[in-house]
Design a protein around this nucleic acid. Structure first.
Length: 443
DNA sequence: TCTGGGGTCCTAGGACCC
DNA sequence: TCTGGGGTCCTAGGACCC
């Protein structure tokens, strides 16, 4: 038996822990650049605010409906997530952390009724971290996700599902007829893995509810759609197709991209951004003990500005031998940027992607000069590089991203905030990870 | 005026080989 | 005029998730 534990409206719930006055009120959390809504309280959902909806489209609700908007505070959410995950892990032999706000628990070998354990878990996480969760139990991952959805909706929309399924829902405890009623009451688009396009096509074929798709022929679905849908339907029928993975696999690509606060036209400014992105991805790369075989850089103008000329190039540069050295990655990234940059365009976004990742230490040694005329460094030099990068990572972890950076060209040592710095007008304090930002009590 | 930032997996089609 | 067949590898793009 599996459980899916999921924090309700994670980012909003994290903010409410430290600002209880926001409980019961419509709240959204905005993306990096205060661009779109990335989390919504139930009250904000009731107002009709959509996931990823541009902030400027709903901003008026501040005045008319008392909507509160906060800038994303990922440092806070990451720390709250760690606390929640640690508590949840104690309830089952195995845990897979699936995202910042969800984990699967595998109860294989655990005896006794599970719903009470789910309620205990929920109560402890709520009391110890302040985060409200929902718990869904079932025999496969896809079913556990669905049970979790039912637990949430039964709580949020009384009447949508039986009241006793609220907060904690165990499909295994339902009578067959009850389970069938639940499947019939649930739209096929709510299923994990069935998105907008697929559900629209399914509906055209007369498949509207979860019950409909469970009764369809998996092989026929595979032919009409693809193997992913077939697996999803098999999981809905109780046939496990996805295992619980305790140890996360190393990422196959690592990306850092940002929209700018305002359009950027100068190469110098883009170079500064791209070097910064390269430093971030290099840091992440070393954290998972990998090296990159190639670096990709992309730029784009705004597709929403029809009146602007569009230019969205990308370029990939191989790294031979593969490396995790910030200086080499930043140099390659800026070279790629220079090769594709064209003046006269209003760029609004750029990004750096590391691909062709391999485990550290497996990289081949070249006895011929590489593309840039360099030989594979000798052991002593490699050791120095590694130590330099370790020192950089340690300083940046302790004092904040960017405390130590690679000098890139003409940038002055002490520079003003770049013109394209992010807008983040409503960020809350990092209560749990910065000593100077902890909650103050009294005057 | 203002439109996120990460990831994964699968598939189709082209290049290439024998 | 007539223009293989089967296999592999790679890449771009689509769909999905949070």
């Amino acid at each position: 038996m599996l459980a899916l534990v999921d924090v309700n409206n994670m980012y909003v719930s994290c903010e409410r822990v430290f600002r209880p006055a926001l409980i019961g009120r419509p709240v959204v959390v905005l993306s990096h650049n205060d661009g779109v809504c990335v989390a919504r309280s139930n009250e904000a959902k009731e107002l009709g605010v959509q996931m990823a909806q541009p902030w400027f489209q709903v901003r008026h609700l501040q005045r008319t409906a008392g909507l509160t908007a906060l800038s994303a505070n990922f440092e806070l959410y990451g720390d709250m997530s760690n606390r929640m995950m640690t508590l949840a892990a104690a309830y089952a032999p195995r845990q897979e952390i699936y995202s910042i706000d969800e984990c699967f628990l595998d109860f294989a070998g655990v005896r006794g009724p599970l719903a009470p354990r789910g309620r205990e878990l929920r109560a402890q996480v709520l009391q110890w971290t302040g985060l409200p969760t929902s718990v869904g139990f079932a025999t496969t991952k896809t079913l556990a996700k669905l049970a979790n959805h039912v637990a949430k909706m039964a709580e949020r929309k009384p009447g949508s599902y039986p009241r006793q399924l609220a907060q904690v829902c165990n499909f295994a405890e339902l009578a067959p007829a009850q389970l069938e009623a639940v499947m019939q009451a649930t739209d096929v688009g709510e299923v994990w893995g069935i998105g907008r396009k697929t559900s629209a096509r399914l509906r055209e074929g007369g498949i509207r509810t979860v019950l409909d798709v469970i009764r369809a022929d998996p092989l026929a679905l595979r032919q009409q759609f693809n193997v992913v849908l077939e697996r999803t339907v098999r999981e809905l029928r109780g046939e496990p197709c996805q295992a619980v993975d305790e140890v996360p696999e190393a990422n196959q690509q690592i990306m850092c991209s940002r929209s700018f606060g305002e359009p950027v036209m100068s190469l110098a400014s883009l170079t500064e951004s791209v070097s910064g992105f390269a430093a971030r991805v290099a840091h992440k790369l070393r954290a998972q003990r990998s090296v990159a075989g190639a670096v990709q850089v992309f730029l784009s103008t705004s597709p929403f500005r029809q009146q602007d000329r569009q230019h969205s190039p990308s370029a990939t540069l191989p790294l031979k031998p593969p490396t995790a050295d910030t200086r080499q990655l930043a140099a390659a990234a800026t070279r790629a940027l220079e090769a594709m940059f064209r003046s006269g365009y209003r760029y609004v976004k750029a990004g750096v992607v590391l691909v062709d990742l391999q485990p550290q230490g497996h990289a081949q040694v070249l006895d011929q000069p590489d593309l840039f005329g360099e030989l594979t460094p000798q052991p002593a030099e490699r050791r120095d590089r590694t130590r330099l990068m370790q020192a950089m990572d340690a300083l940046n972890t302790r004092f904040g991203q960017g405390a130590v950076a690679v000098a890139s060209g003409a940038r002055p040592a002490r520079r003003p905030a770049p013109a394209h710095a992010a807008r983040q007008e409503q960020r809350s304090p990092r209560y749990t990870t910065r000593l100077d930002e902890v909650v103050r009590v009294g005057a």
